[in-house]
């Protein structure tokens, strides 16, 4: 899924059923107003925040068995998930990777990521101050890697950040 310089919103009620890996490539890495990719506003707790990619629907394995999927969020932009991530099929698991300066907000919902979560960031301090490389878990969201999954946060040069 690559919106490119456009913005994309998938509203609630639309379930994204995955049978394997999925890459969400959003934004263009620029935070300059003239060059930045288009955004859509979302109001959260009275605060309006702009995102390149908004997915309000559930991301699911559709209860299929043996689905092994890595959800990779990349591209240097800003994404919001509100519908949750679930893998209910026998032996099915999802994992999450956040990379390339991309930021991701998990707001509300349950996010089951038994394959674990990896956050890596190779930007600099200024990139971080502009909001890049951040995983936020807010608005009552529940992230569970279950038994067997780990969370790893790493940065090459300056701080990637996680917050809840």
């Amino acid at each position: 899924m690559k919106p490119g310089d456009s913005a994309l919103r998938i509203e609630s009620g639309v379930t994204l059923n995955l049978e394997g890996d999925m890459t969400f490539d959003y934004g263009n890495g620029s935070t300059d107003e003239e060059d930045a990719a288009q955004t859509l506003n979302y109001t959260l707790g009275g605060q309006q925040i702009a995102f390149n990619l908004i997915i309000e629907g559930l991301i699911s394995d559709n209860a299929e068995s043996a689905i092994d999927g890595m959800l990779t969020f990349t591209g240097g932009g800003f994404a919001l998930l509100t519908g949750g991530i679930e893998a209910n099929g026998t032996g099915s698991e999802f994992g999450l990777t956040l990379q390339s300066g991309s930021s991701l907000m998990l707001a509300g919902g349950n996010y089951t990521l038994a394959e674990g979560v990896n956050v890596t960031f190779n930007g600099n301090f200024e990139d971080r101050e502009n909001g890049q490389g951040i995983l936020q878990i807010v608005d009552g969201a529940v992230l569970d890697t279950q038994d067997g999954g780990d969370i790893a946060v790493d940065g090459i040069r300056r701080h990637p950040r996680g917050a809840m």
Partner: peptide
């Protein structure tokens, strides 16, 4: 305003 988050991990 954005509430809280809960994380469980190995």
């Amino acid at each position: 305003a954005t509430g809280t988050g809960t994380v469980t991990t190995d």
